[in-house]
Amino acid sequence: MTTPSIVTLERFRDTSAAELAARAKQLRLEILDVISHAPMGHYSSSLSCAEILATLYKHVLRLRAGDPAWADRDRFLLGKGHVAVALWPLFAELGFFPADWLKTFGSLDSKLTDHPDMHRAPGVDFSSGSLGHNLSVGLGMALAAKRRGFDHRMYVLLGDGEIHEGQVWEAAMAAGHYKADNLVAIVDANGSCADGPTESVMSIEPLVDRFSSFGWHCVEVDGHDTAALMQAFKQASESPGKPFCVVARTLKGKGISFMEASPREWHLGALMGEDLVRAKQEIEEAGQ
């Protein structure tokens, strides 16, 4: 293992939508690989946000590769903490920890947990695991950064089921009230909860109207379209006076047909044998 070089990565660094799409595709394969080391993992909700995470970590966020605790980084908080498995390959690539840590996912006392722990894995800006808390924490960071005179930006990824939690709306209300324009919420609107389609479990729509009515700028995009995501995040960075929400319409289980068909069955599971081969094959062949 060589010492990772420390490289500052500026915001909106040069890349293309196609490169980000390719990275998302690669991330899907890595998610399967990382989970394969564990007894189980959260598949379908990780797959829905692959483009969102790839776009943030490869394009949007100001980071320093090899230096996860760099004080001037932008912060990312994973409200839907159960998809930490989708962060670990991106963090390894950024040199936040050695790539061979990925093989420890799911093992006793691993630093790479199913839900992210800021005191275990370098690169986690705040722990999560209990849904509904991290938008509030991100707001606290946003207010604190402004108070310090830092230009840091906070990004919080929420699940659409997560926003059933009342605290999300307490935070949304407060962020609007305090005009936290350095705070960006992304809703991974994959339309599915553990009990079924989100709209049938507990209706959350119309999402854009709801966030807008709480004093947010809110746009809706195809969450698997990296060009649209790039544009939305750019717009978010250029919209003063209000917090910004990106409602990313996604598909739970995206990229693997049998998970797309029954996302609930693959919310938590263990891919094995022929299923694993077929899943990898489908991801590799997608978009070709």
């Binding site: 800006d125 808390h133 509030s136 924490v137 707001l139 605290q167 935070a171 407060a174």
Partner: peptide, 23 residues
């Protein structure tokens, strides 16, 4: 002074975020 309104849980989590910045 940051008033969180009548939202105790939100106040606690906001406090955690602000404490991350050394306050």
């Amino acid at each position: 002074f940051i008033d969180a309104g009548i939202a105790e849980g939100n106040a606690m989590s906001i406090a955690a975020g602000m404490a991350c910045y050394g306050y």
